[in-house]
Structure formats: structure tokens, C-alpha cells
Write a protein that binds this DNA or RNA. Sequence first.
DNA 1: GTCTATACTCTGATAGAC
DNA 2: GTCTATCAGAGTATAGAC
Lengths: 214, 214
Amino acid sequence: MPTEGKLPATAAQWSTRELILLEASRLFATRGFRGTSTRDICTAVGIRQPSLYSHFLSKQAIAQELLSRDLNSGIEALDRFARDGGSPSVELYRYLRWEITYDLEDPFDKRVLYNVEILALPELDGCRELLDVYNNRLEALIRRGIRGKDFIALDVIFLRRTVDAIILEAMRGSAEGAPIADQPDLAATVVLRALMQTPGEIDSVRARAHSAGL
Amino acid sequence: MPTEGKLPATAAQWSTRELILLEASRLFATRGFRGTSTRDICTAVGIRQPSLYSHFLSKQAIAQELLSRDLNSGIEALDRFARDGGSPSVELYRYLRWEITYDLEDPFDKRVLYNVEILALPELDGCRELLDVYNNRLEALIRRGIRGKDFIALDVIFLRRTVDAIILEAMRGSAEGAPIADQPDLAATVVLRALMQTPGEIDSVRARAHSAGL
DNA sequence: GTCTATACTCTGATAGAC
DNA sequence: GTCTATCAGAGTATAGAC
């Protein structure tokens, strides 16, 4: 579910509500959630500070919407690639390529949404449940890979955290001038090298992923 | 340079200044830097809020000291293992095991020091230079590994970022109930699997690292 | 070094006119 | 939905007595 699909092509046509989400995500990414005031956001959008409350109940509600959108799109993607079948290696490779490409093309900047600063906000209970769903889906994929001897038999939670950390690092790296086009395959390659029992077969995984349409 | 070496054994004997650093690091880790007030820190230490300014010029100065201590210890460790010689694989394995063990045993909680929220503070210029030194040392190690055919020839900066991300993730994981004793070898193993041309030789790397004294 | 008292700024959020 | 006006609270930091 690429964000572009539900938004007008030019920024000038975006709704005020979407603009608030967009500018808030960018400011959060560079100054942190608490380091960004509602006045900062509204100045970037071009409205006065109290007008924000016509669109959101609170500042936390902005973070909540950004986070739940991102989590839902990740869960959807994991489900989509799981339905396609194929070996867990191919499934994971396709998901990583898709996720990182999506993150880097998305105008919303989601670099800090998964920091404690935001995740620990008391208002974000619903998001933490969604996060559990996402984690469970990704762990299930890794577990399938271990059972089928595709992946090494290390602690599943540790492996899932490692995968998440590499996805987030690819997002952050692109924001610091790294060549964007390379990131998805680089990150997917490194993850699969770390997890696969026989990393020498990565080229075959890449080929099968491409023939499966990605 | 383990922190225990320069501190009294029991918390009751710590200086107020060290206690401020300790409690601040813990509060930063769970609420973020901006989410932690100087009052919060002083309450945890057992002094009144203005007394903090007898020890630090500002709240930022606390983050600066925590960060520069951590960076200096990392740089020292990288230099130490580089001086010991051995293959880049063994050198990286030894560094990772040492670094993660140190992070997990250290009473100071450094989980969020490397977030933009803190790194972007204008008062932390000196730390950013130290961070460059650390990054250069780690990149040099990776570059040596690539030249010597130990490691795969992917983008060095991307690989260094991946290594950093996995170190930080091991730190965060341990704070959420993961079995602490396993983290150093798990993380070092995953990193070396990702980087080594022949991941099958990891057992040999581990053996050589242990005979080198770690 | 620690305290009390306080200054001053910034922040999130509400009220009510248009 | 956007505005002006405004508030109440929390924040960092300083002054000065002990």
C-alpha cells in the first residue's frame, strides 16, 4: 500500500491533515518527538498552532497515526508475500526489498517512530498491539525458515530484532546521503547472508525473487 | 576501560556527580533525553533540582559526558584489538564480544545516546568528532577484512552501519528480558556470518579468538 | 555543595469570534 | 476550519542564604 496511491501528486493539493502528518514526520525525524513543538509543525504547514486541533486530538495522536499506518502496511506486505508461497528465503528477500524500497520512496519520514520516546507514550496502546502482530508475523517467517533448514537455528527473537535493526538502519543511512537505489538489495543481501544456512545460494534466491515479480 | 574500575563497589559510596550520570542514563533510556527533566534526575539521585548545576553546566553536558565516555572506551578497545594483530575476522569477533559484554555489564544505560535526539544537540560538537574517529576505526577494520578477502566486498559504510545497528540492538534486547549471557556471542556470530566470505569458518574464528584471550 | 525561592521561557491545549 | 487570545503547567537555569 504505497502512500502515493492515496495522495494527490503535488504537495499543493494535499489536505491540511495530510500535510500535518507529512511535516510532523520530517520534524520528528530530525529533532525527535518531544523536540518538535506543535508550533513547529504548524509553521511548516503554514497554519497557526491552534488549527492543528481541528485535525488531531493531540500531538500524540499524530505519532499514533503515523505509526499505525506504517505497521499496517508492513503487516499487509508480510501477509502478501506469505500468500505467494515459495521458500522462506525468497519470501524474506522479497519482503525486505519491498519494505526498504517503500520506506525510502515514501515522503513520510519514519526514522524515529520506533524509538522509546514515541513507543512508550501512554496513548499508543493500540500501536503496541499492532507492533506485536507485526513482530509475530516476522518471527513466524523466520521460524518457518529454521524448520525448513533454510535459516540457522539461532534464537528467533534475536534474529527478528536483527532484521528490524537492519531495516531501520537502511532507512537512516539513506537520509545521510547513501545511494538510495542500492539500499534495498544491500540490506536484503546482508540479512540473508546472516540467516541462511548456505549463504552461497543467495544468487539463486535473488533470481527466484525476481522471477516471482520483485 | 570498564566503568567498574573507577567506581566504588557500592552505590552508596558513589559521588553525587557519578550518581547523576548513572540515574540520568537510566531515565534517558526509558523516557528519552527530552522526556527526562532535570527534576526527574535529581529526584532519582535524592537531591534538589538546582543542586545539579553544582556538577554540570547544563542538562546537555550530562549527555555529552555519557557519550564521550562511551565513544572513548569503544575507540580504545578497537585500538587494543588492532594492536593484537590476527586476521580481521578474529579482530572483529573479539571486539564485538568485548563491546557487547561491556555494554551489558556497565551500570550506565547507553541505549539512546546515539539517537538523533541527542546526537543533534548543538552542544555536542566534540562528541561528533569522537564519533567520526570511532567510525573511521571500525571502517578501517572492515576495509582490511575486504582487502584480505576475509569479508565480502560490499559498501564499507553500509557494512559499518550494519555492525553498529546490531551492537545497539543487542543492548536494547537485553533490556527487554533477553538472556544477557547469550547476546555477545549471538551478535558477534550474526555479524561475522553477514560479513565473512566463508561463514563456515566461524567456528575456527571463535576458537582463535578464545585462544587469543577472549 | 546543597538548599529555598524565583525568574523566565516554551509548550500543549481550550474558548470563542469569524 | 482557521483565526486571535489566553491559560495552566512544566521546563531550565540563576540568585543568594546556609
